[in-house]
Write a protein that binds this DNA or RNA. Structure first.
Length: 88
DNA sequence: CGTATGACGTGCA
DNA sequence: GTGCACGCCATAC
């Protein structure tokens, strides 16, 4: 991992279906628990369909944003099981 | 190189 | 319980 950004992509790509992590969790996995802001930045600039950024949500339980639209993000998460009682 | 921005998080009123 | 303001890091220009 050269750039912090690449690390974020790798972590998000490894997120299994039905599992949703918060920006804070991803930042912690990346080694910078205080860089949760940079995490969202990386995902925001990310336009790769290989990155399931929809599995990354806020610590408040809100979805935050999504390249394709927040509504799609919520729709996918609900489809994967998020909001079915497991929530975050 | 320096400044500005951003899909956030936490603390306090 | 809700709302406002501040602080943090990385990337882009």
């Amino acid at each position: 991992m050269i750039s912090f950004r690449k690390k974020i992509f790798d972590i998000v790509k490894k997120i299994p279906e039905g599992t949703v992590l918060t920006y804070k969790q991803v930042a912690e996995m990346a080694g910078r628990p205080k860089a949760f802001r940079a995490v969202g930045n990386a995902l925001n600039k990310n336009h790769n369909p290989e990155i399931p950024c929809h599995r990354v949500i806020r610590s408040d339980g809100k979805t935050g944003g999504y390249n394709r639209g927040s509504e799609e993000k919520i729709k996918i998460l609900k489809k994967e099981g998020w909001g079915s009682g497991a929530t975050i």
